[in-house]
Simulated scan of single mutants.
Amino acid sequence: MQPAQEMFRRRVVQAALRLTEGTPMAASTYEQQLLEQFVCGQLTIEEVIRLVDAAPPAPGWPPGPAPAGR
């Protein structure tokens, strides 16, 4: 993989991680490891999605409904 492509992928992944940080959609450690493999060109984004979909759900996912009054 060319350095420019890796740098672009890293910026996109970092932006997505920042956007979801502190939310129920924040990436798990496993998902972050897969994303790092995508950044380095070891996995395609399709492979990342397939592996995430095949993994057992994280504890507390999906989140329940918001408490009343919010």
Rank of each mutant, 00 (worst) to 15 (best):
E47A: 07
A4H: 07
I49E: 15
G22I: 03
A55Q: 00
S28A: 08
E47Y: 00
D53E: 14
V48F: 00
G60W: 02
I49Q: 14
G64N: 04
W61V: 09
R50E: 10
A55D: 09
P62I: 06
A15R: 08
Q14E: 12
F38W: 04
Q14W: 12
Q5F: 12
M7E: 15
E31N: 05
T29C: 15
A27Q: 07
E21Y: 10
T29G: 15
R11P: 02
E46W: 00
Q37E: 11
A68Q: 13
A26C: 04
R10S: 05
D53Q: 05
R50K: 04
P65Y: 08
P62R: 04
F8I: 13
R10K: 01
P62M: 06
Q32L: 09
F38I: 03
Q37C: 09
T23F: 02
P57H: 04
V48A: 01
E47C: 05
A55H: 04
A15P: 10
E21N: 14
A66F: 13
Q42N: 13
R11K: 08
A16G: 11
Q37Y: 09
E46H: 09
V13T: 00
Q14S: 11
P3Y: 13
A15E: 10
V12N: 02
E31K: 08
T20S: 12
L34H: 00
E6N: 12
I45Q: 10
W61P: 05
